[in-house]
């Protein structure tokens, strides 16, 4: 990690070292976006009811991989506009929780960053930001976030473009899209900071498996809710157990 900025807190001007740090730490997390975006691209190309230009543009209009995949699949099945948009909302509503969790770390951030940052707050950007120290200078936080966001954006758009243009040319046996579950496994491990975190992950994973056939991503939401509740309860119990141990 680069040295922290020593400028006054209200100086948020471009900070090259942290921007570069954001790019470098974002690259490995963005790599699975290549095969994933490629798949979204060639599915757009193969789906007759989606014109290629609109499908390609959805890469930066929506900028959210798993929900784009769901939208394309639904449109291929002639789903209604409302069903598509609602499904995308349900799949992406986890970002409401990311937004809430991130907000205290952005105290004092200017409007331009909040407007742009909202667009770039994807899973990996959230995971990276969560792992940064809480006392990090706002200037460094903002520019590393933007470096990471720019990296994801470029890689995602390039991958979707490639998929739309060249079509399905990567043999499925290469299983390149398996890098996506590996990515999420990695993000999970890095995000676990204590025992309750382990419990949140176990409950989230198990509930998601049991509810995998629930319609429109509702299973995912239920799984997150159960995992978060489980983690919080575990934390409370652990704390009260420690207090009892201290008093006795």
């Amino acid at each position: 990690m680069p040295e922290p900025s020593t400028t006054p807190p209200d100086d948020l001007s471009f900070e090259k070292r942290w921007f570069r740090h954001g790019i470098l730490s974002g690259l490995p997390l963005a790599a699975p976006g290549l095969p994933f975006g490629f798949v979204v691209g060639f599915l757009v190309d193969e789906t007759a009811s989606i014109n290629n230009l609109a499908g390609w543009a959805s890469g930066f209009i929506v900028f959210a991989g798993s929900s784009q995949l769901a939208a394309v699949e639904l449109l291929a099945d002639d789903a209604s506009a409302l069903v598509v948009i609602f499904t995308v909302f349900l799949i992406n509503s986890r970002h409401i929780m990311y937004s809430a969790a991130m907000n205290p770390r952005l105290t004092g951030a200017p409007t331009w960053f909040r407007v742009l940052g909202s667009y770039l707050l994807i899973d990996q950007a959230f995971a990276l930001a969560e792992n940064q120290p809480e006392d990090m200078a706002l200037r460094d936080r903002i520019w590393s976030f933007l470096g990471t966001g720019a990296t994801f954006w470029v890689i995602w758009i390039a991958a979707v473009t490639l998929g739309v243009v060249v079509g399905n040319v990567i043999p499925e046996e290469w299983s390149l899209t398996f890098s996506v579950p590996i990515l999420f496994m990695g993000l999970m491990v890095l995000s676990i900071k204590n025992q309750p975190g382990v419990i949140a992950a176990i409950i989230g994973g198990c509930v998601a498996y049991v509810t995998r056939d629930f319609p429109q991503g509702t299973g995912l939401l239920l799984a997150i809710a159960c995992g978060v509740t489980g983690g919080t309860l575990a934390e409370t119990r652990l704390e009260s157990a420690e207090e009892t141990a201290e008093t006795t």
Binding site: F126, M188, Y209, G230
Partner: peptide, 16 residues
């Protein structure tokens, strides 16, 4: 409790 959003979500996406 939002501290547990990340582990719960990433596990829930990965396992299925």
């Amino acid at each position: 409790s939002l501290a547990y959003v990340a582990p719960a979500t990433f596990a829930a996406i990965m396992v299925p």
